[in-house]
Simulated scan of single mutants.
Amino acid sequence: MTQVFNLHAIGVQFGQVQALSGCSLRITAGERLALVGANGSGKSTLLRTLNGLVRPCAGSFQHDVQLRQAMLFQRPYMLRASVQNNVALGLWLGGMHWQEARAQALAALERVGLQDLAARNAKALSGGQQQRVALARAWALKPQVLLLDEPTASLDPTAKREVERLMAEFADAGMTLVFSSHNLGQVKRLASRVIYLEHGRLVADMPTVDFFNGAVPAAAEAFLKGELA
Protein backbone atom coordinates (compact mmCIF):
# COMPACT_ATOMS: atom_id res chain seq x y z
CA MET A 1 0.00 0.00 0.00
CA THR A 2 1.17 3.54 -0.77
CA GLN A 3 2.31 5.41 2.31
CA VAL A 4 0.91 8.94 2.63
CA PHE A 5 2.30 9.97 6.04
CA ASN A 6 5.22 8.73 8.13
CA LEU A 7 5.75 10.29 11.53
CA HIS A 8 8.60 9.20 13.76
CA ALA A 9 8.81 10.34 17.41
CA ILE A 10 7.42 13.77 16.62
CA GLY A 11 6.90 16.38 19.30
CA VAL A 12 4.88 19.59 19.21
CA GLN A 13 5.13 22.28 21.85
CA PHE A 14 3.15 25.49 22.37
CA GLY A 15 5.02 27.58 24.89
CA GLN A 16 5.25 25.46 28.03
CA VAL A 17 2.59 23.02 26.82
CA GLN A 18 3.77 19.75 25.27
CA ALA A 19 0.89 19.05 22.86
CA LEU A 20 2.45 15.94 21.27
CA SER A 21 5.32 13.83 22.53
CA GLY A 22 7.12 10.94 20.85
CA CYS A 23 4.33 10.13 18.39
CA SER A 24 5.17 7.62 15.66
CA LEU A 25 2.56 6.82 13.04
CA ARG A 26 2.31 5.53 9.49
CA ILE A 27 -0.78 6.08 7.37
CA THR A 28 -1.32 4.38 4.03
CA ALA A 29 -3.60 5.31 1.15
CA GLY A 30 -7.24 4.31 1.53
CA GLU A 31 -7.25 4.00 5.31
CA ARG A 32 -10.08 5.27 7.50
CA LEU A 33 -8.27 6.38 10.62
CA ALA A 34 -10.04 7.71 13.72
CA LEU A 35 -8.29 9.71 16.42
CA VAL A 36 -9.92 9.38 19.85
CA GLY A 37 -9.12 10.63 23.34
CA ALA A 38 -10.19 13.22 25.88
CA ASN A 39 -10.13 16.95 25.22
CA GLY A 40 -6.51 18.11 25.20
CA SER A 41 -5.15 14.69 24.27
CA GLY A 42 -3.56 16.00 21.06
CA LYS A 43 -6.07 15.00 18.39
CA SER A 44 -6.46 18.42 16.79
CA THR A 45 -2.73 19.10 17.00
CA LEU A 46 -1.97 15.83 15.23
CA LEU A 47 -4.45 16.65 12.46
CA ARG A 48 -2.97 20.13 12.02
CA THR A 49 0.52 18.62 11.93
CA LEU A 50 -0.53 16.24 9.14
CA ASN A 51 -2.00 19.20 7.28
CA GLY A 52 1.20 21.22 7.62
CA LEU A 53 -0.40 23.91 9.80
CA VAL A 54 1.79 22.97 12.77
CA ARG A 55 5.49 22.19 12.54
CA PRO A 56 6.96 19.55 14.89
CA CYS A 57 9.75 20.66 17.21
CA ALA A 58 11.18 17.13 17.42
CA GLY A 59 11.21 13.93 15.39
CA SER A 60 10.68 13.52 11.65
CA PHE A 61 7.62 13.95 9.46
CA GLN A 62 7.65 12.57 5.92
CA HIS A 63 4.94 12.91 3.31
CA ASP A 64 4.59 13.31 -0.43
CA VAL A 65 4.79 17.03 -1.18
CA GLN A 66 2.59 16.40 -4.23
CA LEU A 67 -0.11 14.91 -2.02
CA ARG A 68 -3.45 16.65 -2.44
CA GLN A 69 -5.15 17.07 0.90
CA ALA A 70 -7.89 19.13 2.48
CA MET A 71 -8.93 19.74 6.07
CA LEU A 72 -12.38 20.19 7.56
CA PHE A 73 -12.55 22.05 10.85
CA GLN A 74 -15.07 21.61 13.64
CA ARG A 75 -16.54 25.05 12.93
CA PRO A 76 -15.89 25.80 9.26
CA TYR A 77 -15.44 29.43 8.33
CA MET A 78 -17.97 30.82 5.88
CA LEU A 79 -17.40 34.03 3.96
CA ARG A 80 -20.24 36.54 3.77
CA ALA A 81 -20.94 35.45 0.20
CA SER A 82 -23.09 32.96 -1.65
CA VAL A 83 -22.72 29.26 -0.97
CA GLN A 84 -21.50 28.75 -4.53
CA ASN A 85 -18.84 31.44 -4.22
CA ASN A 86 -17.65 30.03 -0.89
CA VAL A 87 -16.86 26.79 -2.71
CA ALA A 88 -15.56 28.42 -5.89
CA LEU A 89 -13.04 30.66 -4.12
CA GLY A 90 -10.64 27.83 -3.23
CA LEU A 91 -10.61 26.63 -6.83
CA TRP A 92 -10.02 30.17 -8.10
CA LEU A 93 -7.16 30.70 -5.67
CA GLY A 94 -5.69 27.46 -7.03
CA GLY A 95 -5.53 29.01 -10.50
CA MET A 96 -8.85 28.03 -12.07
CA HIS A 97 -10.74 30.57 -14.17
CA TRP A 98 -13.56 32.10 -12.12
CA GLN A 99 -16.41 30.90 -14.35
CA GLU A 100 -15.01 27.38 -14.40
CA ALA A 101 -14.55 27.53 -10.64
CA ARG A 102 -18.20 28.46 -10.20
CA ALA A 103 -19.27 25.60 -12.44
CA GLN A 104 -17.12 23.14 -10.50
CA ALA A 105 -18.49 24.56 -7.24
CA LEU A 106 -22.04 23.91 -8.38
CA ALA A 107 -21.11 20.29 -9.20
CA ALA A 108 -19.56 19.92 -5.75
CA LEU A 109 -22.71 21.31 -4.11
CA GLU A 110 -24.78 18.82 -6.09
CA ARG A 111 -22.50 16.08 -4.75
CA VAL A 112 -23.50 16.97 -1.17
CA GLY A 113 -27.14 17.70 -2.00
CA LEU A 114 -27.03 21.48 -1.60
CA GLN A 115 -27.26 22.71 -5.18
CA ASP A 116 -30.64 24.36 -4.43
CA LEU A 117 -28.93 26.61 -1.86
CA ALA A 118 -26.13 27.77 -4.19
CA ALA A 119 -27.30 31.39 -4.28
CA ARG A 120 -28.01 31.70 -0.54
CA ASN A 121 -25.71 33.57 1.81
CA ALA A 122 -23.53 30.91 3.43
CA LYS A 123 -23.68 32.71 6.78
CA ALA A 124 -27.45 32.12 6.87
CA LEU A 125 -27.21 28.32 6.70
CA SER A 126 -27.67 25.94 9.61
CA GLY A 127 -24.63 24.34 11.22
CA GLY A 128 -25.25 21.06 9.43
CA GLN A 129 -25.63 22.79 6.07
CA GLN A 130 -22.43 24.77 6.63
CA GLN A 131 -20.56 21.57 7.39
CA ARG A 132 -21.82 20.06 4.13
CA VAL A 133 -20.72 23.21 2.28
CA ALA A 134 -17.29 22.75 3.85
CA LEU A 135 -17.29 19.13 2.64
CA ALA A 136 -18.21 20.33 -0.86
CA ARG A 137 -15.41 22.90 -0.68
CA ALA A 138 -12.95 20.17 0.28
CA TRP A 139 -14.27 17.61 -2.25
CA ALA A 140 -14.05 20.17 -5.07
CA LEU A 141 -10.27 20.23 -4.61
CA LYS A 142 -10.19 16.48 -5.36
CA PRO A 143 -7.99 15.63 -2.37
CA GLN A 144 -6.37 12.24 -1.93
CA VAL A 145 -6.49 12.74 1.85
CA LEU A 146 -9.29 14.37 3.84
CA LEU A 147 -8.56 15.43 7.43
CA LEU A 148 -11.57 16.15 9.64
CA ASP A 149 -11.58 17.61 13.15
CA GLU A 150 -14.77 16.58 15.01
CA PRO A 151 -16.81 16.88 11.78
CA THR A 152 -20.22 16.29 13.41
CA ALA A 153 -19.80 17.96 16.80
CA SER A 154 -22.85 20.04 17.80
CA LEU A 155 -24.88 18.84 14.80
CA ASP A 156 -28.36 17.39 15.15
CA PRO A 157 -28.86 13.66 14.41
CA THR A 158 -30.10 14.24 10.85
CA ALA A 159 -27.14 16.46 9.97
CA LYS A 160 -24.75 13.96 11.57
CA ARG A 161 -26.12 11.15 9.41
CA GLU A 162 -25.72 13.26 6.27
CA VAL A 163 -22.10 14.14 7.05
CA GLU A 164 -21.29 10.52 7.96
CA ARG A 165 -22.88 9.33 4.71
CA LEU A 166 -20.72 11.68 2.69
CA MET A 167 -17.57 10.68 4.58
CA ALA A 168 -18.32 7.00 3.89
CA GLU A 169 -18.95 7.67 0.21
CA PHE A 170 -15.71 9.63 -0.15
CA ALA A 171 -13.80 6.78 1.51
CA ASP A 172 -15.51 4.20 -0.70
CA ALA A 173 -14.26 6.19 -3.71
CA GLY A 174 -10.68 5.74 -2.48
CA MET A 175 -10.08 8.87 -0.42
CA THR A 176 -7.96 8.48 2.74
CA LEU A 177 -9.84 9.71 5.82
CA VAL A 178 -8.25 10.81 9.09
CA PHE A 179 -10.77 12.19 11.56
CA SER A 180 -11.09 12.96 15.25
CA SER A 181 -14.29 12.15 17.07
CA HIS A 182 -15.78 11.86 20.55
CA ASN A 183 -18.65 9.85 19.04
CA LEU A 184 -17.58 6.23 19.51
CA GLY A 185 -20.55 4.98 17.51
CA GLN A 186 -19.34 7.09 14.62
CA VAL A 187 -15.84 5.66 15.01
CA LYS A 188 -17.25 2.13 14.84
CA ARG A 189 -19.25 2.96 11.73
CA LEU A 190 -16.57 4.81 9.77
CA ALA A 191 -13.08 3.82 10.90
CA SER A 192 -10.96 0.82 9.96
CA ARG A 193 -8.26 1.80 12.47
CA VAL A 194 -8.25 3.69 15.76
CA ILE A 195 -5.53 5.80 17.36
CA TYR A 196 -6.00 6.55 21.07
CA LEU A 197 -4.14 9.60 22.39
CA GLU A 198 -3.63 10.68 25.98
CA HIS A 199 -1.74 13.78 27.15
CA GLY A 200 -0.11 14.10 23.73
CA ARG A 201 1.11 10.51 23.59
CA LEU A 202 -0.03 7.77 21.24
CA VAL A 203 -1.21 5.04 23.61
CA ALA A 204 -2.98 2.62 21.26
CA ASP A 205 -2.99 1.99 17.50
CA MET A 206 -5.34 -0.87 16.59
CA PRO A 207 -7.88 -2.09 14.04
CA THR A 208 -11.31 -0.78 15.02
CA VAL A 209 -12.75 -4.20 15.79
CA ASP A 210 -9.86 -4.95 18.16
CA PHE A 211 -10.04 -1.56 19.85
CA PHE A 212 -13.66 -2.09 20.81
CA ASN A 213 -13.66 -5.84 21.35
CA GLY A 214 -10.11 -6.91 22.18
CA ALA A 215 -7.46 -6.26 24.78
CA VAL A 216 -6.46 -2.60 24.94
CA PRO A 217 -4.01 -0.68 27.17
CA ALA A 218 -5.44 0.19 30.59
CA ALA A 219 -5.70 3.91 29.78
CA ALA A 220 -7.72 3.21 26.64
CA GLU A 221 -9.92 0.77 28.52
CA ALA A 222 -10.71 3.47 31.10
CA PHE A 223 -11.57 5.87 28.26
CA LEU A 224 -13.96 3.35 26.69
CA LYS A 225 -15.67 2.90 30.06
CA GLY A 226 -15.92 6.65 30.61
CA GLU A 227 -13.52 6.43 33.56
CA LEU A 228 -10.92 8.99 32.52
CA ALA A 229 -8.27 9.85 35.08
Rank of each mutant, 00 (worst) to 15 (best):
residue 35 L to A: 01
residue 176 T to E: 02
residue 152 T to W: 05
residue 118 A to N: 11
residue 6 N to D: 15
residue 111 R to N: 14
residue 74 Q to V: 04
residue 214 G to W: 00
residue 146 L to R: 02
residue 63 H to P: 00
residue 52 G to K: 01
residue 135 L to W: 06
residue 40 G to Q: 02
residue 32 R to C: 11
residue 201 R to E: 15
residue 206 M to V: 09
residue 80 R to N: 15
residue 59 G to I: 05
residue 71 M to R: 04
residue 215 A to H: 12
residue 45 T to S: 10
residue 175 M to F: 00
residue 132 R to G: 12
residue 2 T to Y: 11
residue 45 T to C: 05
residue 170 F to E: 07
residue 111 R to A: 15
residue 222 A to G: 01
residue 193 R to E: 01
residue 96 M to E: 14
residue 141 L to W: 02
residue 59 G to Q: 08
residue 126 S to F: 05
residue 173 A to L: 10
residue 193 R to V: 00
residue 126 S to P: 08
residue 199 H to R: 15
residue 140 A to E: 07
residue 198 E to A: 09
residue 96 M to H: 03
residue 179 F to W: 08
residue 137 R to G: 05
residue 17 V to G: 03
residue 116 D to K: 13
residue 176 T to K: 10
residue 42 G to K: 08
residue 79 L to T: 03
residue 213 N to E: 13
residue 30 G to A: 04
residue 90 G to M: 06
residue 53 L to W: 03
residue 197 L to G: 08
residue 115 Q to M: 06
residue 161 R to I: 12
residue 185 G to N: 14
residue 90 G to R: 03
residue 191 A to L: 01
residue 14 F to K: 09
residue 77 Y to H: 11
residue 102 R to Q: 14
residue 219 A to N: 11
residue 54 V to A: 06
residue 169 E to L: 12
residue 218 A to Y: 04
residue 130 Q to I: 05
residue 127 G to D: 11
residue 211 F to I: 06
residue 147 L to V: 05
residue 134 A to F: 10
residue 127 G to W: 12
residue 1 M to E: 12
residue 135 L to P: 11
residue 216 V to T: 02
residue 36 V to P: 00
residue 218 A to H: 10
residue 62 Q to I: 12
residue 217 P to C: 01
residue 59 G to M: 04
residue 95 G to V: 06
residue 28 T to F: 09
residue 64 D to P: 02
residue 70 A to F: 04
residue 61 F to E: 08
residue 2 T to S: 14
residue 152 T to F: 08
residue 87 V to F: 05
residue 107 A to Y: 09
residue 176 T to P: 06
residue 159 A to C: 07
residue 104 Q to P: 05
residue 31 E to D: 01
residue 181 S to L: 07
residue 6 N to P: 00
residue 154 S to H: 13
residue 103 A to H: 13
residue 135 L to V: 01
residue 73 F to D: 02
residue 228 L to H: 13
residue 45 T to F: 07
residue 44 S to M: 09
residue 9 A to S: 15
residue 199 H to C: 05
residue 105 A to W: 05
residue 220 A to F: 04
residue 54 V to Y: 10
residue 221 E to W: 02
residue 89 L to R: 08
residue 201 R to F: 04
residue 31 E to T: 02
residue 160 K to S: 12
residue 186 Q to Y: 06
residue 138 A to L: 07
residue 31 E to V: 08
residue 113 G to V: 09
residue 42 G to C: 00
residue 200 G to L: 07
